[in-house]
Amino acid sequence: MVDPKFDIKDLSVWFGHLQALKKVTLAIAPNEILSIIGPSNSGKTTFLRMLNRLNALNLSFRVEGEIRIDGVDLLRLDVEALRKRVGMVFALPLSLPLSIYDNVAYGVRMHGEKNKKKLEGRVQAALEEAYLWEEVKDRLQESAFKLSGGQQQRLCIARTLAVEPEVILFDEPCSGLDPISTAKVEDAMLKLKSRYTIVLVTNNVKQAARVGDRTAFFLNGELIELDQTEKIFTAPHDKRTEDYILGKFG
């Protein structure tokens, strides 16, 4: 493997007395899509939120172990700089109560871009990359809440892209979407792969099979198995992985 984008060793996380992650060790390569599957409460979202340190918002949060991004200790980085590099798309389409344009421009503006031309360029580029530009280019000043759920989710992707991250974390991005919108979001993900490292947490096993280069299976806070997606879905090592994929639990 080339130098990994993320290198995670013995990562354990607690919320109060509850251990959410147990000594997880794995590496994520640049420009791959890593899918993470597992039943609810398996720790997959907690794992994802470690990569941009969003877990720290929870007051009872405690962490042990090591995460490196490009070889640098992620837990010691300036948190704002880190989150600029590691963007996130949430489970529900969380538009901010702003116009379509301002939603996308928000992060860029906050990072100090004042030049109107440059801002417009960034917004357009991000919307194009998220395959939303054609649908919204004539109504940029409308409230983002007027968009459909699928459009809003792509808007959220655009908003994340606009700050020019290196990594995008997807936290069950299609859980609230219909199949057609889901397909569009998955399309966008596959095309983004060439430029970004993508980590996708999903409840939908088939989605992992469709878009993941590699797939990891989490259960009760442990990493059970990690392999090429094809292998996980055709010949899993662990009985539990097989049971989960076949829908025997979860």
Binding site: L54, L57, E80, F90, L96, Y106, M110, T160
Partner: peptide, 25 residues
């Protein structure tokens, strides 16, 4: 709370988030 999370996840600082997202709403 999700508005705050979104804003923070973009690398926006806490005070900027309060100033630009929380207070106006």
């Amino acid at each position: 709370a999700s508005f705050r999370e979104v804003s923070l996840s973009l690398g926006v600082s806490k005070w900027q988030t309060i100033r630009n997202i929380v207070l106006p709403n």
